[in-house]
């Protein structure tokens, strides 16, 4: 049960209505709809940051699930576990991203390992990212990719705190999917 009223389609404010056009928009939209001017600015940004782009779907989900696990956001971890499976990640990889298995045993690609080390520091650390971790990232990723991945981490952290702060509920569909996959 969320700590704020999640607005349904009937109570959707005028600027929020387009977000309800395809049915239940989910609790992030339904909570942000309380402040419509924020919703209509935030959602295009979030969609651009987390949606299809020059960064592959798999890489984005690595970042999103790992960031959410570091920030211990149960809503985002659950929701993006399902998305990560859709993006082709294995059960073992998802478990490692969630902190339930060793990352080094689930991932072998140096590029991905560099990314995950950097995500761990950026999302979980304080102050600057250690030079070795930063240089490791730059050895495998172009500047524009680093910029975008940084924004993905930031946008995910924003959603992590939103979902945690407002105690947003995981959908019944996602709960069923995770139960069926043995990943609850």
């Amino acid at each position: 049960m969320a700590t704020v009223r999640l607005l349904d389609a009937e109570q959707a404010p005028l600027l929020a209505r387009p977000f309800y056009a395809k049915g239940d928009p989910g609790p992030i939209v339904a909570s942000l709809a309380q402040v419509p001017e924020l919703l209509e600015t935030a959602m295009p940004f979030i969609s651009t940051a987390l949606g299809p782009s020059a960064i592959s779907w798999r890489d984005k989900e690595l970042v999103i699930v790992r960031t959410s696990a570091v920030l211990e956001c149960s809503y985002c971890v659950a929701t993006h576990t399902a998305v990560a499976l859709d993006a082709g990640l294995s059960h073992q990889e998802v478990r490692a991203l969630r902190g339930e298995e060793d990352i080094a045993s689930a991932f072998r690609d140096p590029r991905e390992l560099a990314l995950l080390a950097w995500v761990g520091e950026l999302a979980g650390g304080r102050g600057s990212v250690p030079a070795a971790v930063r240089d490791g990232l730059h050895a495998h990723w172009e500047d524009h990719e680093v910029v975008e991945l940084t924004v993905v981490v930031g946008a995910t952290m924003l959603l992590n705190r939103l979902a945690t702060g407002l105690e947003l509920p995981v959908s019944a569909g996602t709960e069923r999917r995770l139960a069926a996959e043995g990943l609850r």
Partner: peptide, 12 residues
Amino acid sequence: GVVDTDLLITRT
């Protein structure tokens, strides 16, 4: 007891 939001434009 709850203010309707269906004709809300902005909080600002």
